[in-house]
Amino acid sequence: MRINLPTWLTLFRIALLPVMVAVFYLPFPGHNITAAIVFLLAAVTDWLDGYLARRMNLTSAFGAFLDPVADKLMVAVTLFLLVESHRGGWSGILMAVTAAIIVGREISVSALREWMAEIGMRATVKVAFIGKLKTVMQMVALVVLIVQHEKAAEALRLYHIGEGLLVIAGVLTIWSGLHYLRAAWPSLSADGASRNGSA
């Protein structure tokens, strides 16, 4: 199997995850800014690999499988880092609950899409605008929170902005999840005989 350029970019995005984790914790000046830059670089490769795959017709089954895995790993790992660094208090509870909602939705929608693909209805739960809006809001919130994860007093206002954006992303996460569930509900609620076309 030959690995094409978009898939190499996806693999590069996965390889950036341990780099971001290390930079997030290393105690050097500007480590938070550096971690945010690494996250942004990963986010750019997410857009770029999809663009190149469509523009240059470089799609592959392996790439189609790996791309959403890389996306979910990037978001989940970042959320775990932020939750771990904000333990205690209402702020920590809010961060943990929002992270649980986002990660739980990603797992649920992935399982839903896999099941719909098995019955030949994958197009029913294709990515919608609300899902794309959720992703943009989520990425902006995560960048802000990575930069301000130490919650320095002079930057507390920006941290609260990041918190607010993440909560909005959480609401959009629920909304988009319900959108996909509604689209798939006719297939989910049908009995086995109906799906198989038998009486």
Rank of each mutant, 00 (worst) to 15 (best):
N32F: 12
N32D: 14
T34P: 03
T34E: 04
A35V: 05
A36R: 02
A36Q: 10
A36G: 09
I37C: 13
I37N: 09
V38H: 00
F39Q: 07
F39M: 06
L40N: 12
L40D: 11
L41V: 15
L41F: 13
L41H: 01
L41G: 09
A42P: 14
A42G: 14
A42K: 13
A42W: 14
A43N: 09
A43G: 12
V44H: 05
V44N: 04
T45Y: 09
T45P: 09
D46M: 13
W47A: 14
W47C: 09
W47N: 05
L48Q: 09
L48G: 08
D49F: 00
D49E: 01
D49L: 04
G50Q: 03
G50K: 10
G50L: 05
Y51P: 04
L52M: 11
L52A: 02
L52K: 01
A53W: 05
A53M: 05
R54N: 08
R54L: 08
R54K: 12
R54F: 12
M56Y: 15
M56H: 14
N57E: 07
N57W: 06
N57M: 05
N57H: 14
L58I: 00
L58F: 03
L58D: 03
L58Y: 02
L58S: 04
T59M: 08
T59V: 13
T59S: 13
T59A: 07
S60V: 06
A61Y: 01
F62C: 04
F62D: 00
G63R: 03
G63D: 00
G63N: 03
A64S: 01
A64V: 03
A64M: 04
F65H: 13
L66C: 02
L66Y: 01
D67Y: 07
P68C: 02
P68K: 03
P68N: 04
P68E: 02
P68S: 01
P68V: 02
V69M: 01
A70Q: 10
D71S: 01
D71W: 06
K72R: 15
K72T: 00
K72C: 11
K72N: 14
K72M: 01
M74P: 05
M74T: 15
M74Y: 11
V75R: 05
V75T: 12
A76F: 07
A76P: 05
A76Q: 02
A76V: 10
A76W: 06
V77Y: 08
V77P: 08
T78N: 02
T78Q: 05
L79N: 14
L79S: 09
F80L: 14
L82M: 00
V83E: 02
V83Q: 00
V83K: 06
V83W: 09
E84M: 12
E84K: 04
E84V: 10
S85T: 08
S85P: 07
S85Q: 08
H86V: 01
H86F: 01
R87F: 11
G88Q: 00
G88D: 04
G89F: 04
G89K: 03
G89H: 07
W90S: 11
S91L: 08
S91A: 14
S91K: 03
S91G: 15
G92H: 10
G92N: 07
G92F: 09
I93G: 00
I93F: 13
I93A: 11
I93L: 14
I93Y: 10
L94N: 08
L94T: 15
M95E: 13
